[in-house]
Simulated scan of single mutants.
Amino acid sequence: MKKTLILVSLLIVFASSAFSHIPFFLTPEDFVEGYLVKEIDLSQIYYYIFSSAEKIRFVFEGTCLLQNISTVGQQFHMLFGVPKEADNMKSTADFRPNLTFYGPDREVLEDFFLESAEPEIMYEFFGDTYSYLYVRHDSELTKEGIYSVEIEAEGSGRAWITFGKKERFTVAQIAAVPRWIREMRAFHYQTGLAKWEKYGLGIVGIIGTTLIILVFF
């Protein structure tokens, strides 16, 4: 029993350290009434493909849904980017949706003007992908109520947005990591294995040998 607990703990630590965001791949049906983000401080990333000019809306409450604890004073963390084009593709840097952050009274807390923004090239190790990072935002929630983030695109394209920094994974989520990698790479116009999957067999072998020793010896 003790060895099993050690094995599970090691798997959780490894997956958590390697994979920082819980991914969600959304569709238009998810935004009929706005997409509710239940834990805004939990590290999570949302992927969306705009098929045409449209607006999507994320909402979250300024009071904890589960424990009824006020989040006033809590830090709000958000990143927004566009997957970088693959080789032999037209640049995706021109896809720059409008992004607006609203407070509980529908007041504009920040309106991000991306047309003239100089993007940061962001590399994500686990999926082995690159993105144009346009927004890196941190602020403090000052009121209770419903906050929202709206993204409006004038045409087709792909974009992702992240919220939160707290990392927490379930066993089921850890088991889904291989599928997540394939979906993430496809979203970023990539195919095949990530670099670490190609060249990390030695590391995986060492980890596997260590786990076998812990379980059986």
Results as ranks from 00 to 15, higher is better:
M1D: 12
K2D: 09
K3C: 04
T4D: 11
L5W: 10
I6V: 15
V8L: 11
S9P: 08
L10S: 11
L10I: 14
V13D: 12
V13G: 09
F14M: 12
A18T: 15
F19S: 11
F19I: 13
S20A: 14
S20K: 13
H21C: 08
H21D: 09
H21Q: 11
I22Y: 09
F24V: 01
E29H: 04
E29M: 03
F31A: 03
F31V: 01
V32P: 01
E33V: 07
Y35Q: 02
L36E: 06
L36R: 13
V37T: 01
K38M: 05
E39Y: 06
E39G: 06
D41F: 05
D41P: 02
Q44P: 01
Y46P: 04
Y46N: 02
Y46T: 01
Y46G: 01
Y47D: 03
F50N: 06
F50Y: 04
R57K: 14
F58P: 00
F58G: 00
F58S: 00
V59A: 03
G62I: 01
T63D: 00
L65Q: 07
N68W: 00
N68C: 00
N68H: 00
I69E: 12
S70N: 01
V72H: 08
H77Y: 11
M78H: 06
M78P: 05
F80V: 01
F80Q: 03
V82R: 11
V82H: 13
K84D: 01
A86M: 02
D94S: 14
P97D: 11
L99V: 15
L99F: 13
T100M: 09
T100D: 08
F101Q: 05
F101A: 07
F101Y: 14
Y102T: 07
P104I: 03
R106W: 04
V108E: 12
F112V: 13
F112A: 13
F113M: 05
L114A: 02
L114K: 02
L114M: 02
I121M: 04
M122P: 02
G127Q: 10
T129Y: 09
S131N: 13
S131D: 13
Y132I: 03
L133E: 04
H137Q: 06
D138R: 10
T142L: 15
K143N: 13
K143P: 10
I146G: 02
S148D: 00
E152G: 06
E154W: 09
G157F: 02
I161K: 00
F163Q: 02
K166N: 10
R168L: 11
R168F: 14
I174Y: 12
A175W: 07
A176P: 13
P178W: 07
R179C: 03
W180H: 07
I181T: 08
R185E: 08
R185F: 07
R185M: 10
H188L: 06
Y189L: 11
Q190V: 08
Q190K: 12
T191N: 14
T191F: 14
G192A: 08
A194H: 08
A194W: 04
A194V: 07
A194E: 04
K195W: 15
K195L: 15
E197R: 07
G202W: 10
G202E: 08
G202C: 05
I203P: 09
V204C: 14
G205I: 02
I206N: 04
G208A: 06
T209Q: 07
L211T: 03
I212E: 12
I213P: 15
F217P: 02
